[in-house]
Design a protein around this nucleic acid. Structure first.
Lengths: 329, 329
DNA sequence: CTGAAAGCGCTTACAG
DNA sequence: CTGAAAGCGCTTACAG
């Protein structure tokens, strides 16, 4: 019950290892007749091949690393699942790296082993760090900041937030609070903020810095909880809460609900990501969908191109965002 | 910028490849002096080693497959994350298989390639199928049915449900509905049901089969939604809903809340899994925690033992469950 | 269309 | 404590 090798198959089929290899890899170079004999032998012997041998000889691992900061948040779980399936659909395998800390994240990108390429959902890594030690494999970035080191899929953050804010304004909401991520007292910025600000401008309204509350980690429900708790403590009035994503919206909504604030009657709440979890909240969360399938397909496509030798300039794919109106706004 | 090999390091350090290998693997067989020279050369050259070569020569991949039916449900996302980290903590890597269908699940266990072992969260595979084609790698099962093919970690399902039901009964709840998973009209069974039934027996109450509602997939919020909708449609009265897990509880609670049924005043609701998502519901979901860390540690430990040659009889580790009382019951 | 040989980067007995 | 050689299972030029 020792594993079946290429040589075993070759012997059984009465041809050389090279021919078996060609057939198994679906390459030309084997008569129809030989091909049948080989495939017969393969299934008779139960040959499944040894990736290590293939890898050593070809220099290809057929494996892609998926790097996420964590998995227990809906956005990453859903994204990782999509990536795993998309990669499998391409006949490759994946290895999941949960990069809880900066060191792990950096190592996954700059000292990748055992993979042909990397798909990174960045969390803590910056361009400055990568200037010192650049990526050692083709790498594609999914979401987040614009890096000068990676091909990149840009999520429809601007578009999504412009639509969400527009939706709130169309309802007559005028005092829109931001449940944001960042340092207390900092200025919100980035495409999500820009989308919001431009929607406000369209309506002739100015952004009120007093209505911004920050959570320490954009990716935790508890951050939304903290931020909303702090905002309520200021006593400032607002009729909507535009939250940086579903996770923070879920925490924020929990505060409102437990304080007896009616959603959406008193305060409308929106998220971003269109998670299943948000759809099951009461009231169901209005959100924007970043079109995960599109993002993932674009990321994998660009990575495969790089792996296969494309060596042109950095590329950026911009994906869209759809408004998903539910009950909370 | 071609990758640095063992031979490069050996040349740089002035010794043989074998010696470098020994040092890198932390094996005896190198004087302190040589060791320093080698480690110096390693860091000077930036040697990181090639897993393919190591794998081919040693027969070990240093990689474990984690097989889950899906990732976008909290239980699996949280479990997969714990497994990835535990495996990394053992100096191994992991590959995540999302087995959406039976064929993929079966293949992951019976035709595993490129891994030393498998940790399986079973979904559709049965012992009968495995009798035909047995696992081709050491495999440990996490949760679910008792298999005659795997070492197994048994979740504290019985204990958890006995406690949850006991908690409901202690509040004076007498008409406890089951939001269960399975075929419409079937009989609930398994350790979760047994725990519930025994708690009922302690209180001198009989299980009422009329108060069971089924969802098609135990692992979807939508199943809980369906089941509770169907149960309400029967018009039967109940003062508690013991749900098979958090996912179904979330769906069930959504129905109650949108229908104006007060939770927990009219109906108490409980889940199982102690997910973060449940903790952020309004009202926060009372649940039972299966001690994920304990389960994961036991599973990985048993798998590593098998990989390292343990060949004794099948083992079973039973883990406990803690009651987590929140607002919903 | 097919074969024989070399070689990918490592580890592992076997010597010394 | 260290070295030289063989070999893990494949693919890849090179021949024919």
């Amino acid at each position: 019950m020792t594993p079946v090798t290429l040589a075993d198959v070759a012997r059984e089929a009465g041809c050389s290892a090279k021919t078996v290899s060609n057939v198994v890899l679906g390459r030309p170079g084997a008569s129809a007749e030989t091909r049948v004999r080989v495939l017969d032998a393969v299934s008779r012997l139960g040959y499944i091949g040894d990736p290590a041998g293939r890898q050593l000889a070809s220099g290809r691992t057929g494996r892609v690393a998926i790097v996420v900061p964590r998995l227990y948040q809906p956005y990453f779980a859903e994204t990782a699942e999509r990536l795993v399936l998309e990669i499998e659909g391409r006949g490759m395998t994946s290895t999941l790296v949960v990069a809880h800390d900066l060191e792990t994240e950096l190592r996954a990108v700059t000292a990748a082993r055992d993979v042909d390429g990397v798909i990174l959902c960045p969390h803590a890594v910056t361009d400055e760090m990568l200037d010192v030690t650049p990526p050692n494999r083709p790498t594609v970035q999914l979401g987040a900041y614009a890096s000068r080191h990676f091909d990149r899929v840009v999520m429809g953050e601007y578009e999504g937030f412009r639509r969400l804010a527009g939706h709130l304004l169309a309802q007559g909401r005028r005092r829109i609070a931001l449940i944001w991520s960042g340092e207390e007292g900092s200025e919100p910025r980035g495409p999500r903020f820009d989308g919001y600000r431009d929607a406000l401008a369209d309506a002739g309204i100015r952004h009120d810095p007093e209505l911004v509350a920050f959570g320490s980690d954009w990716d935790r429900r508890a951050s939304g909880f903290e931020a909303m708790t702090a905002l309520l403590a200021t006593g400032r009035r607002f009729d909507a809460a535009l939250c940086v994503n579903d996770a923070m919206a879920i925490g924020a909504m929990r505060v409102l609900r437990t304080r007896g604030v009616r959603v959406p009657d008193d305060v409308a709440v929106t998220g971003f990501d269109d998670t299943v979890e948000g759809a099951f909240l009461v009231p169901a969360l209005t959100s924007a969908s970043p079109r995960g399938d599109e993002m993932v397909a674009a990321a994998v496509r660009m990575l495969v191109e790089r792996i296969e030798g494309y060596d042109g300039p950095l590329r950026e794919v911009q994906t869209g965002a759809d408004l998903v109106v539910r009950a909370s706004a």
